[in-house]
């Protein structure tokens, strides 16, 4: 066993503290900003001491943004709800479609199987702007522009390949003979899939679902082009804080805190699965 000297421990402590400050300081600063007025935020030199205000949160929740040039209506809470709806529905559909597809790609060798899997992955290669113009034209013809269904559909480009490729790896790691043992004991293929394969790949499915949720939540450009204000998520809704009379930093900070909270809560809740899920494939022999 290695023994570390006091100096080494101290240096390690300093290094860890620097890393923690580096990563957490922006988050802490934004959190503090969300309780300050624009004037306090913009003062020179900046100071961590201020009189806290809930005005920014009140403005977001009430939907009334007061600036020097007047009062604006903002739909932040609706944007937040849109984000929850779009991300949840997109990931749910991607899981329903992607998990069985991942199982099929992992277990069955069929004609063009690898080509289809690669094509699905290639959706992630193309820059979103490349597909947006044809997509918006098609969406107009199909009547999908500015609908939740349209956005959820296009979000599959983000969520489905991610889930399919991550979960496929987990299914491939499960010995097929575990499933064979179950099948030969008198169970159907479907029952084997639902009662053996899916539970065993559970951590991987949870990790893939969580990552897909975060990716969907953070998407900006699809909703910006394909939806109007009342269907847009928070990432696009945040543009409303850039007003004619200036940028409302306090409200933006409060909006960031509110919009990060659901994904952060979800990530903390599922942290165990996430770490287990993402590292399992790497350590298995």
């Amino acid at each position: 066993m290695e023994h570390t000297s006091g100096l080494e421990r101290a240096l390690r402590g300093v290094a860890l503290a620097l890393i923690v400050v580096f990563f957490l300081f922006p988050i802490l600063w934004i959190f503090l900003m969300s309780f300050q007025t624009n004037e306090e935020i913009l003062r020179i030199p900046p100071s961590p001491f201020f009189t806290p205000t809930l005005g920014n949160y009140a403005a977001l929740i009430s939907g009334k943004l007061t600036t020097v040039s007047g009062t604006l209506d903002i739909a932040f809470m609706r944007n937040l709800w849109n984000s929850v709806l779009l991300s949840t529905a997109s990931v749910a559909i991607a899981l329903v479609l992607g998990v069985p597809a991942a199982y099929a790609f992992a277990r069955f060798k069929f004609r063009l199987g690898e080509d289809i899997a690669f094509t699905l992955l290639s959706f992630r290669f193309a820059p979103p702007l490349l597909v947006l113009l044809p997509l918006s034209l098609y969406f107009q013809q199909l009547g999908l522009t500015d609908t939740y269904a349209g956005l959820i559909w296009v979000y599959q480009l983000i969520a489905l390949p991610l889930i399919l490729w991550i979960v496929r790896g987990y299914f491939e790691d499960i010995s097929p003979d575990i499933e064979h043992a179950y099948r030969v004991a008198g169970h159907s293929w479907w029952s084997t899939f639902t009662r053996i394969a899916v539970p065993l790949a559970g951590p991987g499915i949870a990790a893939a679902g969580l990552l897909a949720f975060i990716f969907c939540w953070n998407n900006f450009v699809f909703a910006l082009i394909l939806a109007s204000a009342d269907k847009q998520p928070v990432t696009v809704g945040a543009l409303a804080f850039v007003t004619a009379s200036g940028i409302q930093y306090g409200q933006i900070a409060a909006a960031i805190v509110l919009s990060v909270t659901p994904t952060l809560a979800l990530a903390l809740y599922a942290q165990r699965y996430l770490v287990e899920g993402l590292s399992l494939g790497a350590v298995k022999g």
């Binding site: 010995s175 003979d177 575990i178 064979h180 043992a181 099948r183 030969v184 293929w189």
Partner: peptide
């Protein structure tokens, strides 16, 4: 289907349900 064949099997790789 394997379920309908009336056979049982012990696997070289054990394949116990974890």
């Amino acid at each position: 289907e394997p379920a309908s064949r009336g056979v049982t099997m012990a696997f070289e790789g054990y394949s116990l349900y974890p």
